[in-house]
Computed example of a mutant assay.
Amino acid sequence: MTVSVCIPTFNQSQYLVQAIRSVVNQTVPAAEIIVSDDCSTDDTAVVLQQLAQDIPTLRVLRKEKNVGIAQNVDACMRAATGDFVVRLDSDDFLGPTFIEQLSALLAKHPAAAYAHAAVQEIDQNGTFLRQRLLSRAPGFQASEEALQAAKKGYRVAANIIMFRRTALEAVNYSTGRPNYVEDFHLSASLAAAGFGNVYQSEILSFYRVWTDAGKTRQRRKLLEITGLYKVFDEVLEPAYKQRKWEVASLTRQRTSFACAQADCLGWNIYTPQEEAEITHALKNLSASGQTSFFIWIHSNGLGFIPNAYVKFMERLRLTVKQMLVKGKS
């Protein structure tokens, strides 16, 4: 079985060398490393040119104009020729046994569309933060179980994943997916198409969380909410109806997502028009009275009340998750 590692990138040259070198240093080598540069304006092109001189397996694709996350990821993965395809964002990097361990899991479980593992979260300087572990037991998860789990969100520790290429082909890669939350949309589509997944509870990669001085991530909130709507509207609800499963649980979960996302209305960074667009998107995700109440709460500066409750519940869930993980290990 051959492995391709796909690295979509945009203006992250300061991290790109570490990402690529982490692939070169694998205990089981990748057949190819494909970097798709989404028309970066920093020195990414120079960095890649230098690396290509001593890494014969490195292939570089460059977009003539910026196409966004989903299209760049799609192009990068479609260029892969390996049996298994790793998506690695350019600010993250792999532990040395990532390919060895996850390729073995995919070979062992032919019904799995992808393999994923626990990750170590790091900051922009590489300092270790928290470990990201899933509460589920390691091993294979069948498609029906994965589809049920998907309604609560993207069920991976981080978006550093090894896919089976034939599974990506079956769902047309990332074509037509939202330009944000495209990873969640893809994983839900794979479950809806009848594929399972397999999880390794050992930490095999490093996921970077960095400070966004320009608040770019916050300003993507409208895209995130719209993307969540598309996951439910385009993937989960049709799949549930096809299986004759009840959809009331999806309606409740849409409301839960909308209420949680409404906190952005208290950030005081949006223009009135942007706030109106976000409000419309939230109500599109869930038209419930509960959603409208949370929109009002956050829009009127009272978000500290539900936020305090959410933080308490997150600490409680984290404690329970750690206990469950220890019990299953």
Rank of each mutant, 00 (worst) to 15 (best):
9 T>I: 03
11 N>W: 11
11 N>P: 06
13 S>G: 06
19 A>E: 15
20 I>R: 07
27 T>D: 13
32 E>G: 08
38 D>G: 04
44 T>K: 02
44 T>P: 04
46 V>W: 10
51 L>P: 01
53 Q>M: 08
63 K>V: 01
65 K>A: 14
69 I>L: 15
70 A>N: 09
71 Q>M: 11
76 C>V: 08
76 C>W: 10
80 A>S: 14
84 F>I: 03
89 D>P: 02
94 L>P: 01
98 F>E: 06
99 I>R: 04
102 L>Y: 01
115 A>N: 06
117 A>K: 03
122 I>H: 07
129 L>H: 06
135 S>V: 05
151 K>G: 02
153 G>V: 13
154 Y>H: 14
154 Y>I: 06
165 R>F: 00
167 A>E: 02
174 S>H: 11
175 T>C: 07
176 G>V: 11
180 Y>C: 14
181 V>F: 09
182 E>K: 07
187 S>Q: 15
193 A>Q: 02
193 A>C: 08
194 G>T: 04
208 R>P: 04
218 Q>P: 04
232 F>R: 06
233 D>A: 15
234 E>V: 00
237 E>P: 03
242 Q>P: 01
242 Q>M: 10
244 K>L: 03
245 W>T: 01
248 A>H: 09
252 R>W: 02
256 S>D: 13
258 A>L: 08
259 C>V: 08
264 C>P: 14
269 I>N: 10
274 E>G: 00
277 E>K: 08
281 A>R: 00
283 K>F: 07
287 A>I: 03
291 T>Q: 09
299 S>V: 07
299 S>G: 15
301 G>M: 07
303 G>C: 06
313 M>N: 03
322 Q>D: 08
325 V>G: 04
328 K>A: 05
